[in-house]
């Protein structure tokens, strides 16, 4: 990649104005000194240590970090599926515990209920909160139309492709009208083309729905393409490395991927996540240079 001469801190006036606008909005989510440790047969493991950050209303925040930085644990705590050891989170200024309607979640794996049709999957949340069948159904149709799947309302999840299933999962989470949409590597299992389409699609949805997105990913390009701000976590234990503003202007397009701001941001993220490849033993993947190499094929049968 060509070295970018720009800094990720250089923001065009429009981008500066946009961030000023974001900062002027209420803080919808405040995470205060969050820590989490697990007890395992190997002993106590500290997954998160003193994580604090704020998210403004209708902001798109991505959380990135090397494997083991606890980003999925953080998402699970935010969703209320895990309980933090210390610290608290405030939603609209109120402390929250346990799962709730105010936080929707989209998982990486296919979390759709296989025994329900697409429509009934989307109706699940509203039905659980006591909405009538008719109302829930008409609402479900609207959400399905939003993700472009109204034609598949009566199909079963196993009849859909991977990308379509994740669109249903998004519609299902949004049908509950959450304040925050948590997404834990939702496009990780998709092929590259589908993933790119889903990213654009997600931005379209986010633009049209009053929702704040907290998006977990390990794909830096994805994070830069989607996010207003990127929270970088460092591993062992998971701590906040930095919280950077993405200088790429909106609306975003795939053409920006080779742009100056994009490359500068990516360089910054790469340096931030992987400062000269730390030799921490906890990262048990050997680096490419040090892989033991044994020739398993004929000496003359060379490919390079």
């Amino acid at each position: 990649m060509i070295e970018s001469t720009r800094s990720y801190l250089d923001q065009s006036p429009e981008v500066q104005a946009r961030f000023a606008k974001i900062r002027s909005r209420d803080k919808i989510l405040q995470v205060r000194h969050l820590s989490k440790s697990f007890k395992t047969p190997q002993g106590q493991i500290e997954a998160l240590r003193d994580v604090s950050f704020d998210v403004h209303r209708r902001e798109f925040v991505c959380i990135v970090g090397a494997s083991g930085c606890g980003k999925s644990t953080l998402a699970r705590i935010l969703a209320g599926l895990d309980v933090q050891t210390q610290g608290e989170m405030l939603l609209d200024g109120q402390p929250v515990t346990g799962p709730g309607h105010d936080r929707g979640m989209v998982f990486q794996g296919y979390s759709l209920f296989p025994w329900l049709t697409v429509k009934h999957n989307v109706m699940f949340g509203p039905r659980m909160s006591g909405q009538g069948r008719g109302e829930a159904e008409s609402r479900a149709r609207e959400w399905l139309a939003l993700v472009g799947l109204e034609k598949f309302a009566d199909a079963y999840p196993h009849q859909l492709s991977g990308g379509m299933r994740q669109r249903v999962a998004i519609a299902r989470a949004l049908a509950n009208q959450p304040r925050i949409l948590l997404m834990d590597e939702p496009f990780g299992a998709l092929d590259a083309q589908t993933r790119a389409r889903m990213q654009t699609h997600l931005l379209d949805i986010w633009r049209n729905v009053d929702v704040t997105v907290v998006f977990i990913t390990h794909d830096l390009d994805e994070a830069i393409y989607l996010a207003d701000r990127i929270l970088v976590l460092k591993p062992h234990p998971g701590r906040v490395q930095e919280f950077i503003e993405v200088p790429v202007p909106r609306p975003r397009s795939l053409a920006q991927w080779s742009g100056e701001e994009f490359r500068a941001t990516k360089q910054r993220l790469e340096a931030s996540i992987d400062p000269e490849r730390p030799t921490q033993a906890a990262d048990d993947e050997p680096t490419a240079e040090h892989l033991p190499m044994i020739r398993m094929t004929d000496v003359h049968d060379s490919v390079e």
């Binding site: 969703a79 209320g80 599926l81 799962p99 979640m105 979390s111 699940f124 659980m128 909160s129 509950n176």
Partner: peptide, 25 residues
């Protein structure tokens, strides 16, 4: 486990979790 967790984030708990997620699942 993802199915149970997904249903919990959608507001299912207690008896309705068993009746609407565990049993059909």
């Amino acid at each position: 486990a993802t199915l149970v967790e997904a249903s919990r984030t959608l507001g299912a708990k207690g008896w309705s979790l068993i009746a609407h997620v565990v049993v059909p699942g």
